[in-house]
Simulated assay, not measured.
Amino acid sequence: MPHLVVLYTGNLDKLTDMNTLCRSLADAMLSVKDEAGAQVFPTGGTRVLAYPAPYYAVADGGAAGKAAGGDGDYAFMYLNLRMARGRSAATQKRAGDAVLAAVRERIDPLMKERHIGVTINVDEGAEVFDAKHSTIHSLFKKP
C-alpha cells in the first residue's frame, strides 16, 4: 500500500500515453509529505495500475456532446487511491490534490478537444485480511 488503480474508457488509449501517466502519478504520490515534512507513501510500496475498459457507456451516449459540437465520443477516468489508515485529513487531501494535478497535466489539453470526465477517490484501507509478499521493499531500506 499505497495503491492507485486507474480505470478508464478504452478510447483514451489512442489519446494519451497511459504508461507515462502512470509514472507521473507514481511520482506525484512519492512527492506527498505529511505535516512533519516526511514522505507519506513508501517508495517500495507505491503502485499505479491502469486498466482500459474496452466496453463502456458514458452519460447519454454522446447526444449532448454532438449537440455541443463535439464528436460525442465521451471518455472517462476513475482513479482510486488506497492508503493505510491513520493519515490526517490534510495529508489525505494533499495526496488527492497531487494525483489530481498529475492527471490534469495530461488530460486538460485533451479536454479542449473532447468531453472527458475524471473522478478521484481517496480511501483508507479497511482490510479484513491484509498480506504482503515482496522483494521490492528491501531495495529502499536504509542500512
Rank of each mutant, 00 (worst) to 15 (best):
V40D: 06
E127S: 14
D17I: 11
L49P: 03
T43G: 08
G37W: 03
M29V: 14
D71S: 08
E113G: 10
A63N: 08
C22E: 07
D123L: 06
Y78L: 15
F41Y: 02
I107C: 08
E113Y: 02
A28T: 02
D130F: 15
T16K: 04
P42N: 12
K112N: 06
Q39C: 00
I116M: 06
A89Y: 01
D34G: 00
A64T: 12
G37K: 03
G62T: 04
D27V: 00
L139K: 06
N121V: 09
T16I: 14
N19P: 06
A36E: 14
E127F: 13
G117R: 09
D60G: 01
D108C: 09
K141I: 15
T91N: 10
S138V: 08
Y74N: 01
T16L: 10
N121Y: 15
G86F: 03
P2F: 03
Y74L: 06
P143K: 09
A131E: 13
M1A: 08
L49D: 09
L139Q: 13
A68E: 02
K132M: 10
E124C: 05
T119A: 12
I136P: 02
K33Y: 04
A75G: 10
R94W: 04
A28G: 05
H3K: 05
A101N: 05
V118S: 05
K142F: 02
G65S: 00
K33W: 01
I116T: 00
G10Y: 10
R82K: 14
T135Q: 07
T135L: 15
A50W: 01
E127W: 13
R47F: 00
M77E: 14
T9Q: 07
R23L: 13
K93R: 15
D123I: 08
K132P: 01
L139T: 12
T43R: 01
A126F: 06
A63P: 02
N80Q: 12
L15P: 04
G62F: 02
T135D: 04
V118F: 07
A68C: 09
A28N: 05
D27I: 00
G69K: 06
D130V: 11
G125T: 14
N80T: 06
I107V: 12
T20S: 13
K66I: 13
M18E: 08
G96V: 10
R85C: 05
V128M: 14
Y74W: 10
G37A: 03
D97H: 09
L12H: 10
M77D: 05
F129T: 12
G65M: 02
I107L: 05
L21Y: 05
T16F: 04
